[in-house]
Design a protein around this nucleic acid. Structure first.
Lengths: 229, 229
DNA sequence: GTTGAAATTAGTACGAA
DNA sequence: TTCGTACTAATTTCAAC
């Protein structure tokens, strides 16, 4: 209420038009594609792979960086090796009007890898990476629960990270099965959706809130998943 | 069942001991720290920042890469600029014994950025990045729902990505408030936890399943969140 | 937007501590 | 192991086209 209602960060509403101050053409996307898969390529090699000249690659590379399309370059790390093999999702119900405090407290927690404000049942989802399960429990009960802004939490553990793509790009969709569903309307749709689409199934019971009672049973078929690679 | 039950991917159980074939000392962690924040630093600059010689930096850098501690280097991209500003989480209930098919279908969906198998209410969580809300709906109803392995889905939208740290490292915890809770036990704990810790609160109602009825209302306090930066 | 040069820097291979 | 140095190869910058 004290400020503008424009969307600041990423993933917000739909105010973000494509290419504010930078024309995002196919070449730019191709550059992003290469850099996503190999963030350490030399600009010369980048130019070669994209099919443009060195100078052009340098210009575009700098433009993408200066314009903030490329936020940073980072190394993807095997967390098992660094001793942080336990991942957990903590769904947080936040006391309204205390969002600011909640966010400030988050900044104090380095083990938080990701935090997003969501629609639906809870208000936010936090992803943490820890050395063992006990640490997750300690974090939730001793640290999160002590934040006045936190009204309630619900924790689930991640048993396996099946897929982690560096960063999705629009060009990826063309490689999937079939063409994109619509000709990529230049801007998004309405922002405050607060939706919760569900796909119920006759076998499960039509009007049920999606199997709220199933808290165990997600382990039987997991062995068969191993040899799918 | 047809193969070994060892953990394949990352974030799996707790079989991952620290430093299989590579001693993860403080210097290695410091290298990871620098590379996480700037994946494009030259090895010379890296050596300078870590405080080792260039030759040593090259050796260690290569060792980390060859050993798989560093998986890849990537560019962090502002998705608003690329036209994929809508993020959604899809919680999937998977038909047991069809995990393999589910995983295979996932590989066919390039707009999926992250997929993890979780304990708790659902079996898996998928994060997708799309151009608009309609595309998310189309994906859930037309593509996910058509996969026989998918029993049910529940979708929530991400209104704001508050925090996204490149990759958490053990050394980060020392920078938080207070010291780490325990002296970093070398290995994790039990794997199949299937836990769902919760911190209920008198104000909300003790035995309630965490406000299942609250589907809206996560927007009021969000304006105050803007000036917290 | 492209090509081709010079200047700088990165990567490699050694011996010594 | 790690460091320091010299050597080679590559990249980046800057110029003209």
């Amino acid at each position: 209420m004290t400020e503008t209602s424009s969307n600041s960060g990423s993933g917000g509403g739909a105010t973000g038009r494509i290419g504010i101050g930078l024309e995002m053409d196919a070449t730019h996307l191709k550059i992003l594609e290469v850099l996503r898969d190999n963030g350490r390529v030399s600009v010369s090699a980048l130019a070669e792979r994209v099919g443009i000249s060195r100078a052009n690659a340098y210009t575009r590379f700098e433009a993408l960086r200066a314009d903030g399309v490329i936020r940073r370059f980072t190394a993807e790390i095997d967390h098992q090796r660094t001793g942080l093999g336990i991942v957990a999702l903590i769904f947080v119900t936040v006391r309204q009007q205390m969002w600011r405090q909640f966010r400030a407290q988050l900044a104090q927690m380095p083990e938080v890898e990701y935090c997003a404000i969501t629609t639906g049942q809870h208000d936010a989802m936090i992803q943490v990476r820890m050395a063992d399960v006990a640490e997750v429990h300690a974090m939730v009960t001793e640290r999160l629960a002590n934040i006045p802004a936190v009204k309630a939490t619900e924790t689930v553990f991640i048993l396996d990270e099946v897929l982690r793509r560096p960063y999705v790009l629009p060009s990826d969709r063309d490689r999937g099965r079939g063409a994109p569903r619509r000709p990529a309307s230049s801007s998004g749709a309405s922002a405050s959706v607060s939706a919760s689409s569900s796909t119920p199934e006759p076998e499960q019971g039509q009007g049920l809130p999606l199997g709220k009672m199933r808290f165990v049973g997600a382990a039987e078929g997991r062995a068969a998943l191993r040899d799918a690679t």
